[in-house]
């Protein structure tokens, strides 16, 4: 299914699947019980998220800052497995047929599960796309061959440091949308968007008509409004994961819902 951004700018929300915001000791749940993530994802979609990125927790998240590192540790402590995340994608697909669903992972859990098996399972679950943090286009032959058997969209990252030749290759192999990294660095909140982001999106547009989503450090309504001036969508990750960390499993869906509604406020104020 093609990914559609219903509003401008579109909103992509990253969640670390299986993170209940509290350590396993503190939650009375079965291993692999992703009901809290499910409730948060549904609340996020209903509050206006166009796409949910379901993050597969990994033991060594080298591209992530402290917030998502802690979320990954919590999710692993509560027994989250790749199969649980795929199952959650299937549940979300049934519950919200129009929402975009991306499986977001480091490569190793996918390799261990089996690349072909993973692609089949993700497609059967009704996911729209896959983003692998540590997969670059040069290494992606086998991955792309498997993805092309299905309707799944491979989403690649583009960085401010990527020269035009790389952006061209990234654009050529991406489907769905292109994820533009707003700045050099790991995931995490920041005070201000750098000029890197707008310049990168402009360079990407030379090579593609795909929508461009900007992520890394997008954490408030001002950022989202700024991104809306030059890109198609904003990705919000660490800010929401941190909100979940500060909340409780019961209150997190409501808190995330209010936060996402708030992210659109300057934009609504501007257009109304």
């Amino acid at each position: 299914m093609p990914i559609r951004f219903q509003q401008h700018p579109g909103l992509v929300v990253y969640l670390t699947a299986g993170d209940n915001g509290v350590n396993a000791d503190g939650a009375q749940m079965h291993p692999g019980d992703l009901s809290v993530t499910r409730a948060i994802a549904l609340a996020a979609i209903d509050a206006g998220a166009d796409v949910i990125e379901l993050g597969v927790p990994f033991s060594d998240p080298m591209a992530d800052g402290p917030v998502i590192q802690r979320a990954s540790e919590r999710a692993l402590q509560s027994g989250t497995r790749l199969q649980d995340v795929i199952d959650l994608a299937a549940e979300l697909r049934v519950a919200r047929p129009a929402a975009g669903i991306i499986l977001f992972s480091y490569l190793n859990p996918i390799l261990r599960y089996g690349m072909a098996r993973f692609v089949d399972a993700a497609a059967a679950a009704g996911a729209d796309g896959v983003l692998l943090t540590d997969m670059i286009v040069e290494e992606a032959d086998e991955y792309l061959a498997e993805m092309h058997r299905t309707s799944l969209s491979p989403v690649f990252l583009a960085a401010p440091t990527s020269p035009d030749a790389r952006l061209q290759a990234i654009a050529a192999h991406s489907e769905g949308f292109i994820y533009a990294i707003s700045r050099t660095g790991i995931t995490g909140k920041q005070q201000q968007l750098t000029a890197d982001a707008a310049a990168l999106v402009e360079r990407i547009r030379r090579w593609t008509r795909l929508p461009v989503a900007v992520g890394f450090g997008i954490s408030n309504a001002d950022h989202v409004a700024q991104v809306g001036r030059f890109a198609d969508a904003a990705v919000v990750g660490s800010a929401i994961v941190e909100l979940i960390e500060r909340s409780t499993p019961e209150k997190a869906p409501g808190a995330v819902s209010r936060f996402i509604e708030g992210l659109r406020q300057p934009y609504l104020a501007q257009t109304l």
Partner: peptide, 23 residues
């Protein structure tokens, strides 16, 4: 660009990094 495996020792090696580091 994506058809040339780089830095391979048999099946092993390569580059599996965030895009930001590729340049």
């Amino acid at each position: 660009a994506h058809t040339k495996p780089q830095g391979r020792f048999g099946a092993y090696g390569g580059r599996y990094v965030p895009e930001t580091l590729m340049a």
